[in-house]
Design a protein around this nucleic acid. Structure first.
Lengths: 226, 226
DNA sequence: GCATATATGATAGTATTACTATTATATTTG
DNA sequence: CAAATATAATAGTAATACTATCATATATGC
């Protein structure tokens, strides 16, 4: 069995792009540098004009890949969740016990991100920060119904479903698996942000990663059979 | 003792406005109609131009109250958390038992919103929907440090602190009170949103308000002494 | 009741944003 | 080497996010 897949490519819903950015050098540059730029100045101030200056190309060229900056953010978000799914599949390989599988899943979903050398043009650490501060903007908006209808949230929903299944395996009577999983994922993101910018909203504990510990305990305590 | 306060006015940090909108008819109209308009078209598409047309005034007049639409969103957010605090104080009056106080607090923070007749120019139901979908934008942005430094997040932080104190009273050893409270508040907002637009991310249970039940159970289970 | 201050309205102007369109020039492929 | 395709260069537009100025209406102080 392979323990490492060379040249992995994560599948992204074609609806978010006009031309696959993974199919050309310019496309990859757009992805790579948009992560840098959004990380630096935030999504609100990010424009295709600024990106085109940064990559020494033109607005028109970028528009050939993405209709607008929101589509690009969708692309990054989908990539991120597919990447998480891929890390999850590898992380759970050979673990049979469902409790262990759940704990490992929460570990992967809530721990600090490290670089993944399989994807050269993506800085996962910066992408993670972008996902934390900007990704809610892809669904907390007036297009949510349309975007959902064309499948843009499938990767996220599938990830939630995957972990919900483990919970159901542990306790088939548990009534709130999806609520628990999405609370953990979103919650962990918020807590990482709070610990950096609004520490009064969270708790920092010496010598432990309070965030992963907190959400692991949460899962274990809440799904226990009555 | 008064069981009802006539003519309450919630205190808003003066830094968010140039001229107190509560001090004039136009000001109140700006608040009232901005809630309507943001509710209708979302904060991203909301502009002072559109608002001025709706209230039959001018952009310049609105700019005399708020520097920009983000300040107005800060105003609405601060108002909302002060209102929550006020509801909490009334809701907890005469309850001594800390467990009961905590449960009641979570009830108030997570239950569906109803109109409050004390504030005529504010539609709390629509404001709540705005807070759910837009309020993260006030802190998930590049000004978070500056905004925090001038106290714009105090009302939210004080609310979290208030409930954290109840938790500490119940279990002084509990290590994550703030994390728990902010997870519950943000989580409940997300789950309400998901149940409307992305139901696969949550769980709907017949004949119960799954969201309040879930977060009440969460609090009780997690703070139990070992 | 009148002067004065203050609030609001009307209008104009600017740089930037979020695109669309057209044409020219590279680069790739058959 | 021709044809197809990708990219660059340039121009143009409506909307946005303001700032500035001046006129007029309304409130208040004496």
């Amino acid at each position: 069995m392979l323990s490492f897949i060379p040249n992995v490519k994560l599948q992204i819903n074609e609806i978010v792009y006009n031309k696959d950015p993974d199919s050309s050098e310019l496309g990859k540059k757009i992805i790579k540098e948009s992560i840098e730029l959004i990380y630096e100045i935030g999504f609100e101030d990010f424009t295709f004009k600024k990106l085109s200056l940064k990559i020494k190309s033109t607005e028109a060229s970028i528009y050939r890949y993405f209709d607008n900056k929101h589509s690009l953010l969708h692309y990054l978000t989908i990539w991120y969740w597919r990447w998480m799914e891929y890390k999850l599949i590898f992380g759970l390989a050979n673990i049979q016990n469902p409790e262990e599988r759940l704990i490992k899943s929460i570990q992967i979903l809530t721990e600090p991100i490290t670089e993944d050398s399989n994807f050269h043009h993506i800085n996962e650490i910066k992408l993670n920060k972008i996902i934390i501060s900007e990704s809610a903007k892809v669904y907390l908006n007036k297009n949510v119904k349309k975007d959902n209808a064309v499948g843009l949230f499938l990767p996220y929903k599938e990830l939630v479903e995957r972990i919900s299944q483990i919970i159901i395996e542990i306790n088939p009577q548990y009534k709130y698996p999806h609520m628990l999983v999405s609370t953990i994922i979103e919650g962990a993101h918020y807590q990482r942000y709070f610990s950096e910018y609004l520490p009064k909203l969270t708790d920092v504990v010496k010598n432990e990663d309070a965030i992963t510990t907190f959400y692991k305990k949460m899962a274990i305590e809440l799904i226990k059979k009555d």
